[in-house]
Design a protein around this nucleic acid. Structure first.
Length: 113
DNA sequence: CGGGTGACTTTAC
DNA sequence: CGTAAAGCCACCC
């Protein structure tokens, strides 16, 4: 496996992603594209998700508050169970539509102005 | 430097 | 609704 859980790399990119995700208020969620845009990389939302992969090993980072553009919990498979991510979000007051987050109500855009 | 990979996104069939 | 492909960029070897 390629799990770089050590996260010894102090790349600014990762740090920025971590910082943004940590700033997500309770009861809100963000998207990979929104975060990517906020830190400067308009494209490649993949990098955000990848950074979160390292974040997944850090309990300081609420990676469960980050979803894809559709509000779908793409990374839930990376958690302990297929429903862990959703449970955590619901626990914070996030509304769900079947298997998707109600982005219309809970979408939060990082503001690093 | 180059190749492989990936929790994305969009378009296309 | 499903899979496929391309574009995207950072990280690792």
């Amino acid at each position: 496996m390629l799990e770089q859980k050590d996260t010894s790399s102090k790349s600014d990119f990762f740090e920025k992603v971590f910082e943004i995700v940590k700033l997500i208020p309770k009861g809100k969620v963000s998207t990979y594209g929104a975060i990517g845009t906020a830190i400067g990389v308009r494209s490649s939302a993949r990098m955000v998700g990848w950074a979160l992969n390292s974040a997944a090993y850090r309990n300081d980072i609420p990676c469960h508050r980050v979803v894809n553009r559709n509000g779908d919990l793409t990374g839930k498979h990376y958690f302990a169970g297929p429903n862990v991510m959703r449970e955590m979000l619901e626990s914070e007051g996030i509304e769900f539509s079947e298997e998707r987050v109600n982005l219309a109500k809970h979408l939060w855009i990082p503001d690093i102005s």
